[in-house]
Amino acid sequence: MRQLLATETESGDTTGGTISQLSQLTLEDWLWSGAILGTAFILALGTRRVVQRLLRNASNPYVGTLLGRLTAFVVFSIGFVYALNRIGVSIAPLLGIFGLLGLALAFAFQDILENFIAGILMSIRKPFESGDQVTTVGFSGVVEDINLRTIDLRTFAGERVFIPNAMVWKEPIVNHTLLGNRRTTLDIGVGYDADLELSTSTLVDAVATVDGVSSEPAPEAFAH
């Protein structure tokens, strides 16, 4: 009974001390706290706009908006902490709770966060864009869409493949469209009694008439 009573008395004294401390604050303390909070709010808005402008050309339009809001939240949170410290409010227990909660959520949504971060990094680095022909993770095709979780790839067989961003980020990416020109080698058989010189010249003339084939360097054919 004595231990319980002592605990309750100590808790009551702590609460009373906090209330007493707040009641002793001067007008200057409250004004400083409000000024810090207002400055943090203005800086958060400015930071969000700067980040969105820097990332407005990202391949994914949602990246700039999302990172801008996230940066603004971090800036305002820092200002909020300083404002509370100015009036003597201890936020250590609250930070501990949010830290544990964030750690639990990070473990629970590890795959989602990994794909999300990989999507942001690829939107900034831009290894490919929508419409590019790429080969990655064993698939080849045209990039149809890029979002914060998957890459939507349309294969040359007409299939749609949704590849997680984390897999694409960790694997080599071959962009067949990036440099404009691409060399393609085809093996074509002819009869043993065929005229090789006539066959190669006919093949070169036929390839040169195909749309998309570059004249420089000109197509070539070799017999072996």
Rank of each mutant, 00 (worst) to 15 (best):
D205I: 03
L121Q: 09
A157V: 05
D205G: 09
V75C: 03
I112A: 01
A92E: 04
N181I: 14
A157W: 03
D195Q: 07
A166L: 01
Q110M: 01
Q3H: 11
V51K: 03
F156D: 08
I112V: 02
S59P: 00
F76M: 10
S201T: 14
V168W: 02
T177Y: 05
E28K: 10
R154D: 00
L103T: 08
N175H: 13
F162R: 06
S23L: 15
V75L: 00
L103A: 14
A83T: 04
E129G: 14
T7F: 08
R86K: 15
L121H: 06
A157Y: 02
S20E: 12
S199T: 15
D195S: 14
L37P: 00
A58V: 01
N57P: 02
E8K: 10
S11E: 14
V81N: 09
A6D: 02
R53H: 03
I163F: 02
L153F: 05
L25D: 07
E28V: 07
I151E: 00
A72T: 00
S20G: 15
H176T: 12
E8W: 01
G17K: 13
T9I: 06
I19G: 11
I146N: 04
S11I: 15
W169R: 11
F128H: 09
I163K: 00
S123M: 01
P172D: 05
